[in-house]
């Protein structure tokens, strides 16, 4: 399951169904064409897909963000200092 699918799956029921349908549309060429006529939904779908894309370390890395390194640095610091 992708991170965005987990995000959608843990949402409340009305949003969950709506977002799944929205993402299904946004991932298909015909759906994307349909969404162009619905600017607010199009922006929401675009934001969700952009969040998924830029969450990928391969994409965020060249932008200066390496989540694996951030988490590892935090873990090492916690262990060194005996934090919870």
């Amino acid at each position: 399951m992708s991170s965005i699918d987990e995000f959608v799956a843990r949402g409340p029921l009305p949003q969950r169904s709506a977002l799944r349908a929205l993402l299904t549309l946004a991932r298909r060429p015909r759906g994307r064409r349909l969404l162009k006529g619905l600017p607010q939904l199009n922006q929401l779908a675009g934001s969700l897909l952009a969040m998924e894309r830029f969450d990928d370390p391969a994409v965020s890395g060249p932008l200066g963000w390496d989540p694996v390194a951030v988490a590892a640095r935090g873990r090492d610091l916690r262990r060194a200092e005996g934090r919870l």
């Binding site: 991170s3 965005i4 987990e6 995000f7 843990r10 949402g11 969450d55 989540p67 988490a71 935090g74």
Partner: peptide, 18 residues
């Protein structure tokens, strides 16, 4: 904690922050 927003929204927030 993975430093990845979508995962953390899903796990730490009520209703995944929605």
């Amino acid at each position: 904690f993975t430093a990845r927003p979508p995962e953390m929204l899903a796990r730490l927030y009520r209703d995944a922050g929605q």
